[in-house]
Amino acid sequence: MTGISLILPEDLSNSLADLAKTNGQSASYLAMDVLRDYIAHERALTAQIELAVKEADEGKFATDDQVAAMRARRWSNSAG
């Protein structure tokens, strides 16, 4: 494993330490876990964006009807 050193604002450092203690973990483990999740999220988001750009470059766009149907589904799900 490789080490890393971070200088954190005191409030963030305290919050990290408090949460780690509450969860029975070390602050280092919790920080590693959070970074792992963040990196996975960013990689997935980047892949989705790259796919969308590729599809747009290929001229693949949603029709007006598809967009309207998606909006209707979202709004009906949000309302309930």
Rank of each mutant, 00 (worst) to 15 (best):
K21E: 12
L12T: 07
L12Q: 12
R74D: 14
N23P: 01
R74H: 05
N23Q: 15
R73M: 11
K21S: 13
A72M: 08
H41W: 08
M1P: 04
A68M: 09
L51Y: 08
A56W: 00
D11S: 08
N14W: 01
D18W: 03
G3K: 13
K21L: 04
A72G: 04
K54R: 09
A68E: 14
L30A: 01
V67M: 07
F61R: 08
A68H: 08
A17G: 07
S76N: 10
T46N: 07
V53P: 04
N14G: 14
A69P: 06
N77F: 15
S26F: 03
S76T: 10
R74K: 14
A27E: 08
A56D: 03
S76W: 09
Y38I: 06
R73A: 11
G24T: 07
D65H: 12
S78Y: 06
L12D: 04
D57N: 09
Q66Y: 05
Y29P: 01
A27R: 10
I39L: 10
L12Y: 03
R74P: 04
A20E: 01
L6W: 03
A69L: 10
D11H: 12
W75H: 11
A62L: 15
T2C: 13
L30D: 00
A20K: 00
I4A: 11
L12N: 08
R73C: 07
L19Y: 08
A40Q: 09
D37L: 14
D33F: 10
A40T: 07
D65A: 11
E10G: 15
T2G: 09
V67A: 12
S78K: 15
V53G: 03
R43C: 00
V53I: 08
I49T: 01
A68Y: 03
M1N: 11
W75F: 06
I7M: 12
S76K: 15
H41T: 04
S28C: 07
V67R: 06
S15D: 14
R71V: 07
R74F: 06
S13K: 14
T2W: 03
F61E: 04
L8Q: 05
E10H: 12
G80L: 14
G59I: 02
E10N: 13
A56I: 13
G3R: 06
D65P: 02
A31Y: 01
E58F: 02
R71F: 03
D18F: 04
I39F: 01
A47N: 03
M70K: 13
A44V: 04
V67I: 11
I49W: 00
R43V: 00
L16E: 06
A56S: 12
L19R: 11
A27Q: 05
I4P: 00
S26C: 03
L35A: 11
L51R: 10
A31I: 01
G24S: 06
L16N: 01
T2N: 13
M70W: 09
L35Y: 13
T22S: 12
S26I: 02
S76A: 10
A69N: 05
T2R: 13
L51Q: 14
D33H: 12
E42V: 00
D33I: 02
D57F: 02
S28T: 12
V53D: 03
N77H: 10
D11V: 11
I7V: 15
G80K: 12
G59C: 05
